[in-house]
């Protein structure tokens, strides 16, 4: 059992959980994830590690309560815990002194982006952050990113904070000013990563994305997380989760993400109605 030391509600359906996990805290690197199972019988849910402290033995996860499984996780309270927690999984991010770095995050994609942005900054890069959400209420990690970035632009779809529009619009602004970047990391919903990485790619910016496909074990066993990268079959859990955006077959990736849409919908409804 891994206990919950702290819970913070970031938005109506987004929570931050601080979990007891000394071994993972000691080893984790930016870009890596964990898989957890709340109780016996729960599904295995992969989540990227947002933060951690090796001395104090904890990691932070940010959960968007989107499906039945994440809703149940999000309802956990301090003092409770999760039955199974395994990690850190996946390859760490490639952190280098690239020069001018662009970090673009949308929605809860800002959660996995934070440790990468932090590491890029620590490696001596100039950091430009573009962050977006549907509205001000749902924009997470603003203070953390502000403290980190050399410059930052916020975009909300309703204009309740920062620029009205998507992060892709914010990127177009920068591009039209003739700004140049040496490296970009884009994390968010798959459709957003596809759209934004197409724009960054067009300007010749090498762009990395972090994929969140359906997976079970997270160690290479099931092959459910396979992705077509440059015509080669890659497993996000052992070869990723980060890949060169320009080489990903996005249509195939998006299609596979929707494999269980009907099942997910039913689970969400049941969970919403029964509260269990």
């Amino acid at each position: 059992m891994n206990g919950i030391r702290k819970k913070e509600v970031l938005a109506p359906d987004i929570v931050r959980l601080r979990l007891e996990a000394p071994r993972i805290a000691a080893r984790r690197e930016p870009g890596q994830f964990v898989i957890l199972r709340r109780i016996d019988g729960s599904e295995r849910i992969p989540l990227t590690i947002v933060d951690g402290n090796a001395e104090e033995g904890w990691i932070d996860l940010i959960i968007q309560m989107a499906g039945a499984g994440t809703m149940r996780l999000g309802r956990l309270e301090e003092g409770e815990g999760v039955l199974d927690l395994v990690g850190p999984l996946g390859k760490p991010s490639r952190i280098d002194r690239f020069g001018r770095c662009l970090c673009i995050g949308g929605g809860v994609g800002l959660a996995p982006l934070l440790p990468i942005a932090r590491a890029l900054k620590a490696a001596g890069n100039h950091l430009t952050v573009l962050m977006g959400a549907r509205n001000r209420e749902r924009l997470i990690l603003l203070d953390e990113m502000r403290n980190l970035a050399d410059e930052i632009t916020v975009a909300t779809e309703d204009g309740s904070l920062g620029r009205r529009g998507f992060v892709s619009d914010a990127f177009r602004d920068l591009a039209s000013e003739g700004r140049r970047f040496d490296h970009a990391v884009v994390i968010g919903p798959a459709v957003m990563m596809k759209a934004v990485s197409e724009l960054t790619g067009r300007l010749g910016i090498p762009t990395t994305v972090s994929l969140n496909p359906i997976m079970i074990d997270g160690t290479g066993l099931c092959g459910g997380c396979r992705v077509d990268v440059g015509g080669e079959m890659k497993f996000a859990c052992v070869d990723g989760p980060e890949f060169d955006a320009a080489r990903i077959d996005w249509d195939s990736f998006l299609k596979r993400l929707g494999s269980y849409r009907e099942f997910e919908h039913r689970g969400r409804e049941k969970c919403r109605i029964t509260g269990r």
């Binding site: 079970i216 459910g224 396979r226 077959d249 195939s252 299609k255 596979r256 929707g258």
Partner: peptide
């Protein structure tokens, strides 16, 4: 990569 293609590992797991 079509929806409905499983490895036996995944299906059985």
């Amino acid at each position: 990569n079509a929806v409905g293609v499983y490895s036996a590992n995944e299906y059985l797991t």
